[in-house]
């Protein structure tokens, strides 16, 4: 056998393998969607018949709608708070370059790298001390800690895209710190900030471990409710709720993809 034919065989194998891996990556997620429209209470694929009964049951139960709204009520403030703090951190680290900015940036990045279970068991006693355990502010703070580095990374990337001379120019022209940020810096990093905010919301919307420790039955999020239900029984209601969450995640994913395409077009011109 020559190098040529064996090379061609290897290439065919590589393509088949890659397609198989990509299917493995996305297939399980989408198996859930048809199940949520099943007419039977047991899970089988493909479903024996179709109906919307599980969506109806889900809406009629009070815990699912409540958990859904809780997730929104927690995710939106998390996105706003972590976008603000993450953007400030990125500005300070990327533009600052002063003595001590490296250890400070390590503190900013670290929450994303360490296992969340440690943060969860560390935050719970502190939140309990302040009477915030189980409250909205408690879990919002917990999620914000991990979302700050997410925003930091996307905003820092946008800041590195252009030279600080724009900010110096604004300042020599008479703009103070706030005016410089609002009129010059922010318009130039806007896409990074918005993408960071969406990432933060998505993280909070999907997060389980912190929510497990810092929410109460009244403030519990959708992932926590799913988790609690999963440990008891696997019914198509969970599939319906999951499909709903998937829809929201993919709308946000699409928004980010469009924003990034817009950004890459803008930087190319």
């Amino acid at each position: 056998m020559t190098w040529n034919t064996s090379g061609r065989l290897a290439r065919i194998f590589l393509v088949v393998f890659t397609v198989a891996v990509l299917i493995y990556l996305i297939m399980p997620t989408f198996v859930i969607v048809p199940m949520s429209f099943s007419s039977k209470s047991y899970l089988s694929f493909p479903p024996p018949g179709w109906s919307l009964q599980w969506y109806q049951t889900m809406m009629e139960r009070h815990d699912y709608p409540q958990a859904f709204w809780n997730s929104i009520k927690i995710g939106v403030p998390v996105a706003l708070l972590s976008t603000t703090l993450g953007t400030l951190a990125a500005l300070g680290v990327v533009r600052g370059r002063f003595f001590g900015s490296r250890p400070m940036s390590a503190v900013v990045i670290a929450p994303l790298m360490l296992p969340q279970i440690i943060l969860a068991i560390g935050l719970y006693p502190i939140m309990a001390k302040f009477g915030l355990a189980g409250s909205y502010p408690g879990v919002v703070i917990g999620h914000t800690v991990i979302c700050i580095p997410l925003v930091f990374i996307t905003v820092a990337a946008s800041l590195k895209n252009y030279h600080p001379a724009y900010e110096y120019a604004a300042m020599t022209l008479g703009a103070n710190w706030w005016q410089t940020f609002w009129h010059v810096t922010f318009p130039m990093i806007r896409v990074g900030v918005i993408v960071g905010g969406i990432l933060a919301f998505t993280f909070s919307f999907d997060e389980l471990i912190i929510a497990l420790f810092l929410t109460s039955p009244e403030t519990r999020t959708l992932p926590r409710l799913l988790w609690e239900d999963l440990r008891q029984y696997v019914t198509p209601i969970i599939a319906s709720a999951t499909t709903l969450v998937l829809c929201i995640s993919f709308i946000l994913f699409g928004a980010v993809a469009l924003l990034q395409r817009h950004l890459s077009k803008a930087t190319r011109s």
């Binding site: 001379a165 724009y166 110096y168 120019a169 300042m171 020599t172 022209l173 009129h183 130039m188």
Partner: peptide
């Protein structure tokens, strides 16, 4: 004094015209 109180005009190497 900060730059924004000095009332000095500066032309930068790559102009730094605000693209937006």
């Amino acid at each position: 004094e900060p730059p924004f109180q000095r009332n000095i005009g500066m032309v930068f190497q790559n102009y730094a015209l605000f693209p937006h």
